[in-house]
Nucleic acid binder design. Sequence first.
DNA 1: ACCGTAGGAGAACGCTCGTTCTCGCGTCAA
DNA 2: TTGACGCGAGAACGAGCGTTCTCCTACGGT
Lengths: 183, 183
Amino acid sequence: MDSATAREQALDAAEKLFYGRGIQSVGMDDIRGASGVSLKRLYQLFPAKEQLVVAYLERRDVRWRGQLAAYAERQPDPGRRILAVFDWLEEWFAEEDFRGCAWINSYGELGARSERVADQVRAHKQAFRDYLASLVTAAGLPDALTGPLFLLAEGAMVTAGITGGTRPAAEAREAARSLVAAR
Amino acid sequence: MDSATAREQALDAAEKLFYGRGIQSVGMDDIRGASGVSLKRLYQLFPAKEQLVVAYLERRDVRWRGQLAAYAERQPDPGRRILAVFDWLEEWFAEEDFRGCAWINSYGELGARSERVADQVRAHKQAFRDYLASLVTAAGLPDALTGPLFLLAEGAMVTAGITGGTRPAAEAREAARSLVAAR
DNA sequence: ACCGTAGGAGAACGCTCGTTCTCGCGTCAA
DNA sequence: TTGACGCGAGAACGAGCGTTCTCCTACGGT
């Protein structure tokens, strides 16, 4: 097995376990077991667990935002693209293994102790916010709408993570619709 | 020192440390050091750390909601009481030692492993939501407004926790004002 | 065939931390 | 006075886990 595939398998296992059970309750040994990558190899690829965590968040960030953008772009009307974000959230919340926002969860677990993880979370949230801002601009809406839309999305993610269910997405979408219409 | 004051001192120390540094990075020994309550006493009062965590969240819940309600009630007009919630959030976010929402953070840290902690978090969020619902009803506004207002507040809390600063509260308040005005 | 190297399995190490135990001291009832 | 008891200080125990080390096997180049 070459380094590149070992890295991917390690990250696949790390993502599944970290997201599903939390970071601190997953040991490096669990990742070895789930990935088939030996401890020696793991530590060659990621000299410390923290770096594996950061790599997990980075890779997930790219995929998460990519999928969101791909979903939204299916909607040709710029105004409706904003609402499509909430549709996408609703589909995400409905997934079998949905366990809340990986970054919010990671921040709660490690934000106070790992500056790198905290940076990663802030970067992800900033990127998401920037994306929303680009949608708002493209729709010819005032910039001031970005903040509220972002807060609705964050509130929906954290609430869906805690209570389960897709209702927060629907509520957020209706609120977003109302805010957009008011402008 | 009698049991009641030992309990209070233990909870004072636990709250300060758990909230400030996260739960998992605070050991029972740290709590002993900060509270002056011996380990033996601590384990008499709280047979396991998890119970101390639950007691911390419970007591903080009572105080948090009490302070919010006290602040909101200073506003005689029912419609404005809703916005006062966001003013209160803004003041909270500005506090020196603000480190996000204790319940969201705890859920990220322990929600996956401790059912009792998860229950406590859900109960707190439900109580907060119920309180918002009572304000919405008192103001003669439609029930459907509760969800969006709750999501804005949650989004503001989680965002302020991650990025710092009070801006999320201001953004949420403006959005809330707009939603209320749009009915 | 032989050596050097990479890699895997898993033991080992060291530290943290939740929890319990030991010991000694002071207190109070009889 | 004495003995039982409560309590504090802190050592001790045991588990978990991040990280490293040992040992062994396989293989590629000469």
